[in-house]
């Protein structure tokens, strides 16, 4: 069984991000990590491998050279091999372009199960999973919280949908996006870290990938970034005065009603 995991290296939530003075670029502090939701995808792949001995886990990202670090983290966790599709530092603002490369990569590798995160915590698109599945012409299930391989040909998954919990059976090959609750991602052991340090990560030239749109140039971004802004600063907090908690509650409701006009 071949398991393919797509991961993205993203700015850590703690990283400082500064908008350039011309509002055209971002300066991101050099703190990066494997996307929070992608860790569930890697962990699930390893769990499948633990019960299906013939399984092989391939991890792939479309990103800049620094993303090699994130791929090494997944090797340290237990993935077998990892590939970097070199984005040559171009920002991937268009999820369809990213999905095109990932689908192109998947199509030339053999795979039964593709796992990816529910969403990247930097762009928060939640698009790449379903898009890649569509481009590959395979079914997908979003936000999976339980996954069991029934036999070599199908998977039973539990997923979250609006106001309901759904259990479905899906024929392989298929793609699943992972949601919190699926598992507890492991912390790499020192032996894993050693192995990762020695692993060479092959770099793929995106121009060599046949995307569903033809050669790479066919998939130019159709989304233009006009500007970046810092979020509007909220005015300083108004601490509500009062002698007693009751008085404070009273004054708060008064302010919410008369000043903020939200009641």
């Amino acid at each position: 069984m071949n398991i393919l995991v797509f991961i993205k290296q993203v700015a850590d939530t703690e990283a400082r991000i500064i908008v350039s003075s011309d509002h055209k670029a971002l300066e991101i502090e050099n703190k990066y990590a494997v996307n929070f939701f992608d860790e569930f995808a890697v962990e699930e792949a390893i769990k499948i491998k633990e019960t299906h001995k013939d399984a092989e886990i391939t991890v792939c990202t479309y990103g800049p050279a620094r993303a090699t670090e994130a791929l090494k983290t997944t090797i340290a966790m237990g993935a077998d091999r990892a590939f970097l599709i070199d984005s040559a530092n171009t920002e991937a603002d268009d999820p369809l372009v990213v999905s095109g490369y990932l689908a192109g990569f998947a199509a030339r590798e053999k795979f039964d199960i593709i796992l990816c995160g529910r969403q990247a915590i930097d762009d928060e698109n939640a698009s790449v999973g379903a898009m890649t599945a569509e481009l590959l012409g395979i079914p997908h299930v979003s936000m999976v919280t339980k996954l069991d391989v029934i036999d070599g040909t199908g998977v039973r998954v539990q997923s979250e949908i609006e106001g309901a919990r759904k259990i479905s059976e899906v024929a392989l090959p298929a793609l699943f996006t992972t949601q919190k609750g699926l598992n507890e991602p492991r912390v790499p052991l020192i032996t894993g870290v050693m192995k990762a340090m020695k692993t060479q990560i092959p770099v793929i030239d995106p121009a060599s990938i046949d995307t569903p749109f033809g050669p790479a140039t066919g998939g130019a971004s159709k989304i233009k970034v006009l500007s970046y802004e810092s979020p509007a600063q909220r005015p300083a907090v108004r601490i509500i005065e009062g002698q007693t908690p009751v008085e404070k509650a009273k004054n708060l409701v008064k302010s919410l009603k008369e000043e903020a006009k939200v009641l």
Binding site: L26, D93, K222, K224, V225, Y228, S230, P231
Partner: peptide, 15 residues
């Protein structure tokens, strides 16, 4: 569209 959990706000133009 907010990015990075709201640390940045972007304006994007679709083709």
């Amino acid at each position: 569209k907010p990015l990075f959990g709201g640390k940045v706000v972007s304006w994007l133009a679709p083709d």
